[in-house]
Amino acid sequence: MNKLIISPSPHVHSGDTISKNMRGVLTALMPAYLVGLYFFGLGALIVSLTAVLSCVLFEYLIQRYLFKEPITINDGSAALTGLLLAFNLPSNIPIWMIIIGALVSIGIGKMSFGGLGNNPLNPALVGRVFLLISFPVAMTSWPRPIPLNMNYTDAVTAATPLAALKGQFVEIPKTMDLFLGNMGGSIGEISALALLLGLAFLLIKKIITWHIPISILITVFVFTGILNLVNPELFFKPPMFHLLTGGLMLGSIFMATDYATSPMTTRGMLVYGVGIGIITVVIRIFGVYPEGVSFAILIMNAFTPLINNYIKPKRFGEAKK
């Protein structure tokens, strides 16, 4: 018999690992990915493969040659960042831009803070916002959804329904099409149905709790609903439109719930979710950009340490008055 092992309790473990969680999120992203592949065809495939591979490669290179620490690309977090970055890109974006985005995501958004768990901002969104500000045209000319499209950079482009908010004339698809994903947009954001399936999977697997996505969605719904009731002329879009268009579903379910950048307590998660909802609506309706989810999430990411510091969990036996 070997030497007995002595350790403090507990002596059993749930068997949960980082890579299990990351694989779970990747699985939850699959329905939305399939919808993206269906409507954007070859472009979506090229963009997503480039993004994932370059993110993993940059993480490997940085860990190997800059940090000289054990390589952890197997945990799936870099692949997840890559896929989320791809989900936020139009399917006709040139490859070199994707590689720059991946470098910013991994290099600046994640590794410069010390790697997994230490980044204050969602790395995929850092990459996306960097690209959006640097290459506004390429980032906002989305191809039309054509089933099994074989064109890549030369696909026919169209504005997204959200551009209607900024006074552009756009053909607004039917609500059912919005729900299923038959509209222009970034690769992963179009189908609310597929994203909600992903949410259900995440909740069942207990990878995330309901607090962040649901509080964001409810806030957006209520806020736009109130604006719509107060002045239907000026704020003419119904709340349902706001929920189903743009990156709101993708952002609230997969980006805002990123472990490292969201608050630790359920109360804090609710504050964070409401904050994201309000900022999103403010940017969408009053701001220059038609879409504000990424900015809203990044802004609230920056507030997360403050929320963690001041919003404490409900303690056991806290006086109920």
Binding site: I5, S7, H11, V12, H13, D16, T17, I18, N21, T72, D75, S77, G114, G115, L116, G117, N118, T209, Y259, A260, T261, S262, P263, M264, T265, T266, M269, K312, P313, K314, R315, F316, E318
Partner: peptide, 25 residues
Amino acid sequence: ESARKKMQNCIRCAKCVTNCPMGLE
């Protein structure tokens, strides 16, 4: 099942907070 697995970075998943029966962090 005896030895502990290797410790990794805290990814701030908040599972310890949500599972704490005393509401601690």
